[in-house]
Design a protein around this nucleic acid. Structure first.
Lengths: 211, 211
DNA sequence: GTCTATATTCTGATAGAC
DNA sequence: GTCTATCAGAATATAGAC
């Protein structure tokens, strides 16, 4: 890339295009986002988009890649931490995700939609990237179960994952629906999410005993 | 509509188009679905689509309307039931949704995406349609809390709704992700969902005691 | 009602001046 | 690097024969 020297600099034309693209792609998806909309949002000319990124598809790939990376950023490192216990890691995971999604509420729905429509090689590759950390974490879980550090009975792993992710991420996915139903504004929604940081781990513990 | 006499008849051209449209719109959304794909899927000519439905947008509106209706079908009636207690209703609600989504796994993501992009008048109207039943149900909840039928302490309504919907619906939203992560097939996924019918109410009960 | 052919608009991408 | 003008193809919609 010819302009790599300016990478990250805000205000750069390249950067403006990427920001506009991220906003629209993340909000509306690939097909519903028109290149003209991106150019408009970025306040630049349509031709510049192709000058910098060659095609809509390549631009989307970059955005998707960065979105995915952000979505798993820090998580792999966190999982690989040798010192932290499983329950400590779970608490931190939930907290990190809630903070991230408070900043970027559209991320989960974008990831879900993109995974559904493009199980492309890159996505699979990204998946592999976090795979090692996940394997490590899962082994740690099994170890702690064996050693009795995690109290029995233990929830089926499928349900545990589904519940943890569901309780943490779903409110952001259904955000407009929940906000309308509860008749609350952005600030109140975020306050509820902050509450959930401490509630979800406790809830998950309480659910463990159910058979 | 000129062809209303054949309404509901399967095999009708109109019906074939609608079925194809429902499948594609629900799977891929409005923008990513091409009218040619619909015609193709329905095994008819492109021109017929416009003959029956005038435009892609009108066709989409019909599909969206029916999808939304299906999504809330039976629920209003269930909520308005005078005899059933709150906890009985919750159990039934969860069970109904899991059965419905097992048949139509793409429904939630479609609804969520559509609500995000088109908070149109029709959607608001639909929302109002279920509003009365919801109000009735919420009053019943308050009554049962007062009378002590629902044991204290009680979870904040926002969290309760978020948890109930999240635990029930989210697995279907994240279905591909969960299936890959747990390395299971469709049949196993559905079996897990059946399990959740009885687990979720118990989980929700156990969570009630957390402060 | 159904089809083929065609009109019309939209959209992604490029050429070429500055 | 940035813009205007324009092209080529895709996508929606319609005309008109049968």
């Amino acid at each position: 890339m010819a302009t790599k020297t300016k990478k990250g600099k805000d205000g750069t034309t390249e950067q403006k295009i990427k920001e506009a693209a991220r906003k629209l792609f993340t909000q509306k998806g690939f097909a519903a986002t028109k290149t003209r909309d991106i150019a408009n949002e970025a306040g630049i000319n349509l031709a510049l988009l192709n000058y910098y990124f060659r095609s809509k598809e390549k631009l989307f790939d970059i955005i998707m890649s960065e979105n995915l990376e952000q979505f798993i950023r820090g998580v792999a490192v966190l999982m690989l931490d040798e010192k932290a216990s499983v329950s400590e890691k779970l608490e931190k995971l939930i907290s990190i995700y809630i903070d991230m999604l408070t900043q970027e509420p559209d991320l989960p729905i974008f990831i879900i939609n993109t995974l559904r429509n493009n199980p492309s090689e890159m996505v699979i590759k990204m998946n592999a990237e976090i795979g090692a950390a996940r394997d490590f974490f899962e082994k740690q879980i099994k170890r702690e179960i064996k050693s009795g550090k995690i109290p029995q009975p233990v929830m089926d792993p499928f349900h545990l994952i589904a519940n943890m992710i569901g309780l943490t991420i779903f409110p952001f996915v259904a955000r407009p629906l929940l906000m309308r139903r509860a008749n609350i504004n952005d600030k109140q929604f975020n306050a509820y999410m902050q509450e959930r940081k401490t509630l979800i781990p406790k809830w998950l513990m309480a659910m463990q005993n159910i058979k």
